[in-house]
């Protein structure tokens, strides 16, 4: 578990990362609620975007390993690439799960209307997995850290908009609403809606399962071993 331990350590080593990883979720707790939209308070919708950003920032650590040649060094050491990948992802998942817990727990203590905190927590966790897997697949294509991050940032904004996190899907034209379903962000927004409108439990399961499916797909695509 050396890699796991040090990944955690590195994630928090950078001051900017530290602020980003702790302050952003806490800020999300205290954002106000809107009128009719979004289904939960603003912060709970925007936390989805935060998760996407955190995921790419964390995944960049792996990208750095590849670009700087640490991966070469590891491939000469008696460590399987699979174990390297697994321990990294585990560490990131732990960070994201903790963040989700902080947001849900904090909201519950601060008296936000969360409807079903457990379902919300589960939604955040499965969305975190999907976000991590997407970030992993994304960085496997790039060589430059900045380019990867800025590109992804633009895509996040677009996906959040098209997926219905920033604006309600109901006002979208028909075609856009259909296309939105392709995006994982849609399923996240859908999950929030389902929690707020007290849909049956099975509905939540369906949405979480879809998000996990996304995670699997991108994990398979992103786990290719690259050296350069």
């Amino acid at each position: 578990m050396t890699i796991f331990y040090f990944t955690l350590k590195r994630s928090f080593a950078n001051l900017a990362n530290l602020i980003f990883l702790t302050a952003a979720p806490i800020a999300c707790i205290f954002l106000p609620a809107g009128e009719g939209w979004p289904p939960l308070a603003y912060g709970y919708a925007y936390f989805g975007i935060v998760i996407l950003f955190v995921a790419i920032r964390l995944a960049q650590i792996m990208m750095e390993d590849r670009v700087k040649g640490i991966l070469k060094r590891l491939s000469v050491a008696p460590v399987r690439y699979f174990s390297y990948l697994g321990q990294h992802l585990l560490a990131y998942a732990v960070i994201l799960i903790l963040q989700s817990a902080v947001v849900v727990l904090g909201g519950w203590i601060a008296g936000q209307e969360l409807h079903r905190p457990w379902a919300l927590f589960a939604l955040y966790v499965s969305f975190s997995f999907a976000a991590l897997a997407m970030a992993l697949a994304w960085i496997s294509v790039f060589r430059s850290k900045d380019a990867a991050f800025l590109f992804y940032m633009s895509l996040i904004v677009l996906a959040a908009l098209l997926g219905g996190i920033i604006l309600p899907l109901e006002i979208f034209p028909d075609l856009l609403r259909r296309i939105a379903v392709i995006l994982p962000t849609f399923w996240f927004a859908e999950g929030l809606k389902s929690i707020a409108s007290a849909q049956p439990f099975a509905d939540n399961v369906r949405i979480n399962a879809t998000l996990c499916l996304y995670a699997l797909v991108f994990l398979v695509l992103g786990s290719t071993r690259r050296m350069q």
């Binding site: 904004v157 677009l158 908009l161 098209l162 604006l167 006002i171 979208f172 856009l176």
Partner: peptide, 13 residues
């Protein structure tokens, strides 16, 4: 590119 993309989406929405 990003503002143009966003504006296009917004104009459709």
């Amino acid at each position: 590119a990003v503002p143009i993309a966003l504006l296009t989406v917004f104009s459709v929405i």
